[in-house]
Design a protein around this nucleic acid. Structure first.
Lengths: 110, 110
DNA sequence: ATTATATGCAACTATTTAGTTGCATGTCAA
DNA sequence: TTGACATGCAACTAAATAGTTGCATATAAT
């Protein structure tokens, strides 16, 4: 059985795919061609990665003329955090966050 | 190049490994034998998964006599959230905030 | 000491995955 | 309508991965 969660984790497991997501984070709505720029691999390889990212619902696409625009969808990552990572670490993260905050505030006072 | 981040993502990409982490979350310090219980796969398969989890620093082990105790280490997951997932979430929260703002302003105009 | 138990190591197999190349299709512009 | 550009589809290859089996080692208990 391949769950949605599994698709997301698998999609995130590859460094090239994470790089593609990073590009979209910096500039949303990029075309395939733009996503291929500065990549060692072929356009078809990038396409395959994008197919997986789309299957995991991490990327949503819109066809516009002969171009295909790619948009980042943060929802699945959010869900993974809430449902899975959150269970482990929510409390601890909060504590850490609070600690950092108070350190920052201390810094400002000096 | 295989970064630490990459190891963690790859380790989390497998459902069996996530299941093992889940077991440790429910009860920390389990032996290999205990982790193998109720698993379809062989002990050696489980061992291999645990090796990867250890390499990713998601699990820490202690030998005690002839047994090996396994402890969950939440730090790497934490780091991934802070350094990677957080970046996405931040944008999302900002977008949500902006949306709320513009809705509020529209409301005022009517 | 001997036996049972808990784990470790190594070789092998099957499947999945990441990448390639080559060709097809569809859309814009001159 | 012809050429250039953007993307899609399919077959193939190489490498990584998940799993197996068989045997070795180390510790505990009788």
């Amino acid at each position: 059985m391949v769950t949605d969660e599994d698709k997301v984790f698998k999609a995130l497991a590859d460094a090239s795919r994470r790089q593609l997501l990073d590009k979209l984070r910096k500039k949303n709505g990029l075309t395939l061609g733009e996503l291929c720029a500065d990549h060692a691999m072929s356009r078809q390889a990038v396409t395959k990665h994008l197919v997986l990212l789309e299957a995991a619902n991490l990327v949503v696409t819109v066809k516009q003329g002969r171009e295909k625009l790619h948009y980042l969808n943060p929802v699945p990552i959010n869900e993974i955090y809430m449902c899975w990572i959150g269970q482990f670490e929510q409390k601890r993260l909060q504590a850490l966050h609070n600690l950092k905050q108070s350190l920052k505030e201390n810094d400002h006072e000096q």
